[in-house]
């Protein structure tokens, strides 16, 4: 649905986005995750035809954002950061205006406006001026506006920023409900939020894509460094191990065990080594691990299987990036 190829955006000497590539399939809910000023908003503004790219191409539903801008715009609903609205208009007349300029035919306009008002829970506020609404409801109007022409693609820049916890949950559920029918691309720098809403996350840092993380029901199921093979976490497991004893010997012995891919010493303190073990899923290797360590005369302090959280995945992706430089 969205194809981004070698996208670069420079503001004078400053490169905001550097040669990024990604594809988004129909019906996916994609999170754009990264620290502030990572290039999220810039990328979104290019996809929405608000600004042109310096280099590279972006296609939405096969249409180029530069050559077929109008076709792209018809297919996109966009909510910019901080949700700018015409504050003097009522919710209803604002949505009517947006429906009109987005080309919703006159006969369907009333219906569409009513539909998005209901979908976004704005029923009691339809005649209220948008400038008099609370932040949470302004956000809903922003979403309603993005939805009003029933676009195939929704692009939401920081949809929950500045909301209170209850509003955040409501808006998240709303966005979640759009998945499937719509292709959603949203940006955030809040990890739990991304893991709750999205089924894939693109981690972007300093204008470059660090990698992507696949999610299912909030669990990390795969991770892919940019330019590397995708690692399927359903096939690989991680075990955290703390052992007192000679580190080199322990690593050698552990590596000899079948099904163990990699053993890494992550930390060493008071003669206790902290190890991270990557192993293939299937048979449980924990009893075997414990047995070998004890037979060797070392002291087993801790043995714990680890599930990768989005936080770990994010840290790993952004750490590699630093090492790579």
């Amino acid at each position: 649905m969205i194809e981004v190829e070698n996208l670069t955006k420079r503001y004078g000497d400053f490169t905001a986005v550097k040669e990024i590539n990604f594809r988004i399939e129909k019906g996916e809910v994609i999170g754009f995750l990264g620290p502030n000023a990572a290039g999220k908003s810039t990328t979104m503004r290019i996809i929405t035809c608000f600004m042109p790219a310096t280099e590279g191409t972006v296609r939405v539903d096969g249409y180029d954002v530069f050559d077929d801008s109008m076709e792209v715009r018809k297919r996109i609903g966009y909510m910019p950061e901080n949700v700018p609205l015409y504050t003097e208009m009522s919710v209803k007349s604002y949505l009517h205006f947006m429906a009109k300029i987005k080309g919703v035919p006159r006969s369907q306009r009333n219906n569409r406006v009513d539909e998005v008002i209901n979908a976004c829970g704005l029923d009691n506020f339809r005649n209220r001026a948008t400038g008099k609404l609370s932040k949470g409801y302004r956000q809903r109007v922003g979403l309603a506006q993005a939805l009003v022409h029933n676009p195939q693609v929704l692009i939401l820049d920081e949809p929950t920023i500045g909301l209170d916890p209850r509003q955040i949950i409501e808006i998240r559920n709303l966005i979640k409900s759009f998945g499937g029918d719509h292709t959603v691309l949203l940006s955030t720098h809040i990890l739990p939020e991304a893991s709750m809403i999205c089924n894939r996350i693109i981690v972007i840092n300093e204008g470059k894509i660090a990698g992507t993380v696949g999610l299912m029901d909030g669990k990390v199921i795969n991770i892919q460094h940019e330019g590397a093979e995708r690692v399927d976490l359903e096939k690989l497991g991680n075990i955290h191990l703390q052992v007192k004893g000679n580190t080199e010997e322990i690593i050698d012995q552990l590596k000899a065990i079948e099904n163990i891919d990699d053993v890494q010493l992550t930390h060493y303190e008071d003669k206790v080594g902290f190890y991270n073990i990557t192993h293939e899923m299937g048979s449980d290797i924990r009893p075997q691990l414990a047995k070998i360590i004890i037979q060797n005369g070392s002291e087993l302090m801790e043995l714990r299987p680890m599930e990768m959280t989005l936080e770990d995945a994010f840290l790993e992706l952004t750490r590699e990036e630093v090492v790579g430089v």
Binding site: F50, M70, R73, I76, P80, P84, T87
Partner: peptide, 14 residues
């Protein structure tokens, strides 16, 4: 100033 231009100019209007 208010940023509404971003919504306006990303709509299918010239």
């Amino acid at each position: 100033k208010s940023g509404t231009i971003e919504v306006l100019l990303t709509s299918p209007v010239t």
